[in-house]
Structures are given as C-alpha cells and as structure tokens.
C-alpha cells in the first residue's frame, strides 16, 4: 500500500480552527474527515510504499506498544529519517489508514475534549524533533529505528526493556537526547541497564535519567561517539554502581 499524507494547509487549518472539527474526533470512523480532506484536495498518496500490516490492539498498552514498534519498523524499514520526521506523513496515515489505531491508543485523550491532547494524537504540537517521540505512531517507528539491534539475534531486546512500563515517557526521556542517535551509545546504555535488571534490580526512569545525565557530563571532555558499545556499557555501569550500588 502507499502511505497517505496530509497537506500542510489541512494541518494548519486543524490547528487554527479546531472547534470546527472537534466533535468529529469522537466519530467511530474517519469518513467525515476523509470527505472534507478529499473535497479540499488535502489528502494524497505519497510515493512511500509498504506491505500491508496489522497493528496489535492488546488491552495492555505496554504489550501492544512493544509489538507495534516491531510491526511498524519492519513494515517501514526503508522509510528515510527525513520523511519519518515529517508531520504530514504521520498525520495522513493516522487520519487515513490508521484511524482505528489512533482511536484505540489515544482513546482517553480523544474523549477528554481537550484541544492539545486531541491534536497531539495526530499532529506535531511540540516541535519537529520532540514530536517524533510523542506522536503515538511516529514514536513507534523512531524507537525501532534508534534501538533496532543488528548485533543481537533478538533485534528488539532493548525495546523490551523500555516498554515494560510507561513506554511513552521512557521513549521521550531516553531518545530525545541527541547522542542517543548513535546506536553504540544508546545500546551501550541499555545493555548496562539490562544487565542490572537481570541481576534482579527493579528498573525505573531514574536509571535512564542517571545514565543520560552522566553521559552528558562526560561528553564535555570526551568524544562519546568514538566509544565502543562495550566501553559505554562499562562507563555507565561504573556510574550506576556508585549511584544504586554494586550488584552481584
């Protein structure tokens, strides 16, 4: 199938004239929106193709988020980062092909009636980079893109770790640091935290925060990108041992 994209004019219109559209975000189907968009020639097929895929709709978001990272990333592995950071693409897919998904994953927000929560479900409301990690669909792709581990037979092992609980806030916390774009750094940090988990420690957001804070600090005098995954794991491990204790 070819992914849909929404014209920038439509995005601006939704953001500027939300009250006109508000009630229809509660619609069961996307029929009303699609009719409007087609009337105005606001929705188009992009040149981006992928095989058909079906997302997971588990009642437990922690389970479905984990599965959906894999489903979306595997289906759209060829998507380039420029298109993947384009609001028009994700908005088009959510209004068009994945309306059912946004209704499922953002049920509470869509029923809240709050403008920001509703628009955040479809559009980029927090700047291009940050929104990539907030939008309910783009964050799945970006998590796959940044944490897919080619060296591990289980390519999504790191995603398992951050999706055990509070996936959305872990993604934002962990991936919005620029250095996490380097797989050696991102996977080195997660290798270290994963090892602590295997030794029985309960992992929480404070582990991710501490690791990020420390790498940021070290990055002042050390060229982090030259480090190997193993070196990163050891470096962060030393810090977490000091902060949370050595585990045997």
């Amino acid at each position: 199938m070819k992914l849909l994209y929404l014209d920038k004019e439509a995005i601006d219109e939704l953001k500027m004239n939300f009250p006109i559209y508000k009630s229809h975000f509660k619609d069961k189907t996307n029929e009303w929106f699609m009719e409007r968009f087609k009337e105005k020639d606001w929705i188009h097929e992009s040149k981006i193709q992928c095989d058909e895929f079906e997302l997971d709709y588990d009642v437990d978001y922690n389970k479905s988020d984990r599965k959906n990272v894999e489903i979306i990333y595997e289906a759209l592995k060829d998507l380039n980062p420029v298109h993947a950071s384009d609001e028009r693409l994700w908005a088009g897919v959510l209004f068009g092909q994945l309306w059912k998904f946004v209704k499922y994953r953002r049920a509470e927000e869509l029923n809240s009636g709050e403008e920001l929560k509703i628009l955040n479900s479809f559009l980029f409301m927090r700047g291009r980079k940050r929104s990539c990690f907030i939008n309910c669909l783009s964050r799945l792709w970006w998590t796959g893109y940044l944490l897919y581990d080619p060296e591990n037979a289980c390519h999504y092992a790191s995603v398992d770790l951050i999706s055990e609980s509070a996936f959305p806030s872990n993604v934002l916390l962990l991936l919005s640091s620029n250095f996490m774009a380097n797989k050696k750094l991102a996977l080195g940090v997660l290798d270290c935290i994963s090892e602590r988990k295997q030794k029985g420690e309960k992992i929480g957001r404070y582990h991710f925060t501490e690791a990020n804070k420390y790498l940021n600090c070290i990055g002042g005098v050390t060229f982090l990108d030259a480090m190997s995954r193993e070196e990163v794991k050891k470096l962060v491990g030393g810090r977490l041992d000091k902060e949370f204790g050595i585990l045997i």
């Binding site: 980062p81 620029n178 996490m180």
Partner: peptide, 27 residues
Amino acid sequence: CPLTSYRCRISSVNPEIEFKLDSRQLF
C-alpha cells in the same frame, strides 16, 4: 543533523578530510 537523528564521525591523522552525506538523512 539533530532533526533527523543523523550522527556520524570521520577521523584521520591527515589534516584533510573529505565527506559525502546522503540528503535523505538530512533536514
């Protein structure tokens, strides 16, 4: 390129470095 999470490094002991980047990675 922070917006696309693109990041690379090039090193050399020579004082001249050439590079070529794919614009599909840059914004």
